[in-house]
Design a protein around this nucleic acid. Structure first.
Lengths: 187, 187
DNA sequence: GTTAGCATGTAAGGAGTTACATGATTTT
DNA sequence: AAAATCATGTAACTCCTTACATGCTAAC
């Protein structure tokens, strides 16, 4: 699941796991699940739906077109193959799950992820972040003279943001360790 | 300066403003200036250098190839047109300067940016972030039931990160207001 | 001796955005 | 009466990454 397209496939499959819907709604939920950042357009969603249909992972539902007379909506639902595909994908934690985008998408479906896989993903992400942080700090120290005050402020802010995320991850990991069954953070 | 390519051009021109260098060094400094995130590869840098040369904004320096016998490095320097282009770009703050990537790049060259332009950019960025934050919060409230505990935790973390950045920007703006000449944050 | 870093480039491919095309319905 | 939201799609374009191609030097 390294390619972005695979991420989109995974997310679509994950959302359809909760029941069939149509493209427009899928996009809305995708954008609210992944945050207002990295929003995606129809130009990528509709082709992805077409592709998943061709691969037999999703299928159009026989939705009664008429009703109020509004434009017919095309419903999609998971096929058994699609369900299998998602279940297989959600139950494995590779090195790629530490990556920014992949991590966010995998996290969004943690409710369907087993506890030990969740732990692996969280720890992998923390490790990756810590690595980057160490590299950034070494870099900053190495050529401090090259930096003016503004660049230094930007670098420091970036480092603090990364540190915060590391702490956040540590809290989640600790919470999991204490209550393995628990979804962890409270709403 | 909305397109990514324009950002790269701006950054190259800005770095060459400090003196001529060659591609490899440019990439190194670019990646350390923009953070370990959004690193870029030679596949985009070298074509950009070629393009800027064709547009007459930079030119190859007549660097003595030999010396130690190592592979000849191709130095680049700003032409007067390139300097003019950068100076014009750095002295204007459009709506696009609030965007993630554009903001980061503009911020990296704040030392060469006039105080009033800096203020516009900082305030524009803060405004954009606040907008997104408000939208995200409204969205979260609207469909709280749709979210499980994990999705909610992810959304909350995203919101807190945005809040932190807003506060950071506010501090920078206040510091500027108090000491208009001052580079602001201390190293 | 072999890994890491210095150094420059190209070609192919992937991914996604923007703009366009179209039209109904609901809200202001 | 206009603007926003619902709803689906395509084509062109932009941009960037990956993989390839090549070879020297310094450090371990």
């Amino acid at each position: 699941m390294a390619r972005r397209a695979d991420l989109l496939d995974f997310a679509i499959l994950g959302l359809l796991h909760e029941g069939p819907t149509h493209g427009y709604d899928l996009r809305r939920r995708l954008n609210s699940a992944l945050g207002p950042f990295r929003a995606l357009s129809y130009g990528s969603l509709y082709p992805a739906l077409k592709d998943l249909t061709q691969r037999g992972l999703i299928a159009q539902t026989t939705e009664t077109t008429s009703a109020t007379g509004r434009r017919p909506r095309i419903g999609y639902e998971l096929t058994p193959e699609g369900k299998e595909f998602f279940d297989a994908a959600v139950s494995h934690a590779g090195a790629d799950t530490a990556e920014d985008d992949t991590f966010a998408v995998r996290f969004a479906f943690f409710a369907r992820t087993e506890a030990d896989i969740r732990r692996l993903i969280l720890e992998g992400r923390r490790h990756r972040l810590q690595e980057r942080l160490d590299a950034a700090r070494a870099d900053t120290r190495r050529k401090r003279e090259e930096f003016d005050a503004w660049s230094a402020a930007l670098a420091r802010h970036g480092e603090e943001t990364a540190e915060r995320e590391v702490r956040w991850l540590s809290e989640l990991i600790d919470a999991e360790r204490r209550h393995p069954q628990d979804p962890g953070p409270q709403p």
